[in-house]
C-alpha cells in the first residue's frame, strides 16, 4: 500500500502526514502525531472516546479515514484549553468530579463543547441525548450532565455580562 500525503489543520496548526489508505484519523492522531488525548475504546463508533470535530462537526475519529482529512480542520481535546486557561467545561468537569477514571473524559469534553457551541441553553434531556454516543462506565452520568448544565449556565452569564 502506498502512503497518502495529507495536509490538514489540527487545533489551528497546519500539519502534514503520510498515512495508509485504511488508516483511521484516530490512528493518525495517536500513532503518527502523538495526540493521544482521543482514546480508542471500541474502534467502531459505539463509545465516543475518540470524539473530535471535523470542520466543526462532531465525529468519531475511529470512523474517519486519515486520508479524508486533506484540507479539513480538526479539533481535539488538546486544543480545548487556551494555554494555561482551561475551557469552562474542563474546569466544571473537575469541580463537579465529573470524571472517575477519566478515559472517556476527552470524548465527553469535545462532544459537550460541540453542543454548547450550538446551544448554550440545553435542557437536561438535550444534554443526555446529545451525549448518548459517549459511554461512561464510572459515573452513571449524573455528575457529567450536571457539569455540562453548569458550564452552560456560567457561559450564558458571562456572555450576558459582556
Amino acid at each position: 500500500m502506498a502512503g497518502i500525503h495529507v495536509t490538514t489543520t489540527i487545533n489551528g496548526d497546519t500539519v502534514e502526514y503520510v498515512c495508509q489508505p485504511d488508516e483511521t484519523l484516530l490512528d493518525v492522531l495517536r500513532d503518527r502525531l502523538g495526540l493521544t488525548g482521543a482514546k480508542e475504546g471500541c474502534g467502531t463508533g459505539d463509545c465516543g472516546a475518540c470524539s473530535v470535530t471535523l470542520d466543526g462537526r462532531l465525529v468519531c475519529s475511529c470512523l474517519v479515514l486519515g486520508a479524508e482529512a486533506e484540507g479539513r480542520a480538526i479539533a481535539t481535546v488538546e486544543g480545548l484549553a487556551d494555554g494555561e486557561t482551561l475551557h469552562p467545561l474542563q474546569r466544571k468537569f473537575l469541580e463537579h468530579a465529573a470524571l472517575q477514571c477519566g478515559v472517556c473524559t476527552p470524548g465527553f469534553l469535545v462532544a459537550a463543547k460541540a453542543l454548547l457551541d450550538r446551544n448554550l441553553n440545553p435542557t437536561e434531556s438535550e444534554v443526555r441525548y446529545w451525549l448518548a454516543g459517549n459511554l461512561c462506565r464510572c459515573t452513571g452520568y449524573d455528575k457529567i450532565v450536571r457539569a455540562v448544565l453548569d458550564t452552560a449556565a456560567e457561559m450564558r452569564e458571562s456572555r450576558n455580562a459582556a
Binding site: 495517536r30 495526540l35 493521544t36 488525548g37 482521543a38 482514546k39 480508542e40 481535539t76 481535546v77 488538546e78 480545548l80 484549553a81 482551561l86 474542563q90 468537569f93 473537575l94 469541580e95 468530579a97 470524571l99 477519566g102 478515559v103 473524559t105 476527552p106 469534553l109
Partner: peptide, 21 residues
C-alpha cells in the same frame, strides 16, 4: 471537603497517559 483531584488537569486536557498511550 471536596478539593480538586491531583490528576484532574491531566485528565481534562488529554495529557494523562493511559495503557495504550
Amino acid at each position: 471537603t471536596r478539593p480538586l483531584r491531583p490528576d484532574g488537569i491531566d485528565k481534562v486536557t488529554g495529557r494523562a497517559r493511559f495503557g495504550a498511550d
